[in-house]
């Protein structure tokens, strides 16, 4: 497994989309300056998912988490998002990436950004065949609030060839083709652990969450509501 050089990346970009070896990075803004010897610079996109305070005293990694765990936010180019000290937010790259079936990637925080004690990515590995804007798990680990400007360079993409990689007949659709940051998709812990033969899964004892506001539009609702009376969102 070797890192792809600038020339190798360009050669992949110059392959027709119909070829499995083709690489897509779009939009490639300031294209002539976007490449280093062994990497491509990536920019911060305009869409964010802000984590909500969970309705229980802990985050429960179940199927509900992807539905109600975040608030969507669009920050137009030229505006900024404030990330308070020690807070996190999900963002995405401006660039949509389509990796060939024989290339994997790694996304790294740009060193200038990292030196502000901002972590851009904590799950940096991108599997061959991936296609989508890359979801960024942005964490401000500094002691001061931070301004994020969509459109600015935040990360670097390093590509590696994967010798002898076999092209799958069909792609997995779980995270296929996202253009906005995506919330995590969990199965219920019970369901997942059952496959390992674990039949009893415990959950912390905590009062049942009282949903008196719609997570989408924040309309006040009766405690037993299953749908929002205003925007009709499923609760």
């Amino acid at each position: 497994m070797a890192v792809l050089s600038r020339e190798q990346i360009l050669a992949r970009l110059n392959k027709p989309i119909t070829e499995p070896e083709s690489l897509v990075i779009s939009p490639l803004l300031q294209a002539t300056k976007a490449f280093d010897t062994d990497s491509v610079d990536l920019r911060l996109g305009t869409h964010f998912l802000l984590p909500r305070v969970p309705p229980r005293p802990y985050f429960y990694p179940g199927s509900e988490a992807s539905k109600h765990g975040h608030q969507r936010l669009h920050v137009p180019l030229g505006r900024y998002l404030v990330v308070p000290a020690h807070e996190t937010v999900l963002g995405a790259t401006v660039e949509f990436i389509k990796l060939p079936n024989d290339v994997s990637g790694q996304i790294l925080t740009k060193s200038s950004v990292a030196r502000m004690f901002v972590v851009i990515e904590t799950a940096p590995w991108i599997h061959p065949g991936y296609r989508g804007c890359l979801t960024l798990e942005i964490a401000n680990v500094s002691n001061t609030p931070l301004l994020l400007y969509p459109g600015r360079l935040v990360a670097q993409l390093i590509l590696f060839d994967v010798p002898d990689a076999k092209s799958p007949k069909k792609q997995s659709g779980t995270y296929m083709g996202p253009v906005y940051p995506e919330a995590p998709k969990f199965k219920e812990p019970t369901q997942e652990l059952e496959t390992l033969g674990i039949v009893e899964t415990k959950e912390p004892k905590a009062p049942k969450p009282v949903r008196n506001r719609c997570p989408e539009c924040l309309t006040k609702l009766p405690a037993d509501a299953t749908r929002c009376t205003f925007c009709n969102s499923e609760l």
């Binding site: 110059n14 392959k15 989309i17 897509v24 939009p27 949509f96 989508g132 253009v179």
Partner: peptide
């Protein structure tokens, strides 16, 4: 591009 779930903003 769409057939391959790829954003068609740059086409070669």
């Amino acid at each position: 591009h769409l057939e391959r779930a790829v954003v068609p903003s740059t086409v070669f």
